[in-house]
């Protein structure tokens, strides 16, 4: 049983996307400073910070390539198949997971929440590139700001 403030936050995508927007703004602003300090050093602070915030809230798996705002503020890595682009064809009639019948499908939740997100909601229709598995366990925030998370996109985009 989840404690109510966590459950309530999880189901407030409009609030979470606003938080994301503010954080993203500040991180981008801080980028030159981070660069001077050294991304490695910043990551040492950021990784524990990400673990204590994103783990209880989203079930973060530390894939290092956070795409929460494009997936209805619901972590796609909690899908047992790690699908990044939407639900598989195995979703049960009650909206639960093919693999774990007791778990609601991550993507059913993601879609419902994306509809309540005025800023980033439509991004659920974007195609997410394959993961860079080397980034597992690293800081998604630092990867995003430093551009490490976008290494593959040159070939990927049409």
């Amino acid at each position: 049983m989840k404690r109510w403030p966590v459950a309530m936050l999880q189901d407030s995508p409009q609030l979470l996307e606003w938080v994301y927007r503010c954080t993203a703004f500040w991180f981008r602003l801080l980028n030159p400073l981070w660069k001077r300090i050294g991304y490695e050093r910043v990551a040492r602070v950021m990784i524990p910070l990400e673990i204590v915030t994103k783990k209880p809230l989203f079930g973060c798996q530390m894939c290092g390539q956070c795409t929460l705002h494009s997936t209805g503020m619901t972590c796609p890595m909690t899908c047992p198949k790690n699908l990044r682009n939407g639900p598989c064809g195995g979703v049960r009639a009650d909206g639960h997971c093919e693999v774990f019948p007791d778990m609601p499908c991550v993507w059913v939740q993601a879609y419902e929440r994306s509809l309540r997100m005025p800023i980033y909601g439509p991004e659920i229709h974007h195609i997410q590139p394959p993961l860079d598995r080397r980034l597992e366990g690293s800081s998604a925030w630092v990867n995003w700001v430093s551009g490490r998370a976008h290494a593959l996109e040159m070939v990927w985009d049409d």
Binding site: P80, K81, N82, L83, R84, N85, G86, C88, G89, G90, E98, V99, I127, Q128, P129, P130, L131, R133
Partner: peptide, 23 residues
């Protein structure tokens, strides 16, 4: 994407899913 390994007769297997069907 493929059915999950749990649907078959060898559920002990490692599920890969490095990519998804769209990727």
């Amino acid at each position: 994407t493929g059915d999950d390994v749990g649907a078959g007769d060898q559920p002990q297997a490692k599920r890969v899913f490095d990519l998804d069907s769209i990727q």
